[in-house]
């Protein structure tokens, strides 16, 4: 199936990427090229095949319920968390006002 420019704009909106009409037009062709190519996967008989869940046999480990045991995974590092913020405000991240 092929996608039109309206679909391109809808995807761009979902992905929060602003695109111009010219970009949407160019992308329509590129995406259709790629999607047309990946559609050959439909030929594969996958009856009874489970989707891949873990590529290498391994099981999910769980962490202990301990606060700040490791500074790399714990809190209490506001300065580090805010160090690269475009608009830090009194210990908060500032964003354009959101109207609910």
């Amino acid at each position: 199936m092929s996608i039109d420019q309206a679909t391109v704009r809808k995807i761009a909106s979902l992905a929060r990427i602003a695109i111009s009409d010219a970009e949407a037009a160019a992308m329509e062709g590129e995406l259709n090229g790629i999607l047309g190519w990946v559609e050959q996967l439909g030929e594969v008989d996958v009856t009874g095949v489970e989707p891949m869940t873990a590529v290498i046999p391994n099981h999910l480990r769980l962490r202990d319920d301990v606060v700040d045991a490791d500074p790399l995974t714990g809190g209490n590092r506001r300065d580090d968390v805010l160090a690269n913020a475009p608009a830090p405000q009194h210990g908060f991240f500032g964003v354009p006002k959101v109207i609910e």
């Binding site: 809190g75 209490n76 506001r78 009194h90 908060f92």
Partner: peptide, 16 residues
Amino acid sequence: GAATAFGAEPNTQVSL
């Protein structure tokens, strides 16, 4: 591993 306690100073209970 960040804490869950209620009422802390903003962004203090935030890990990377």
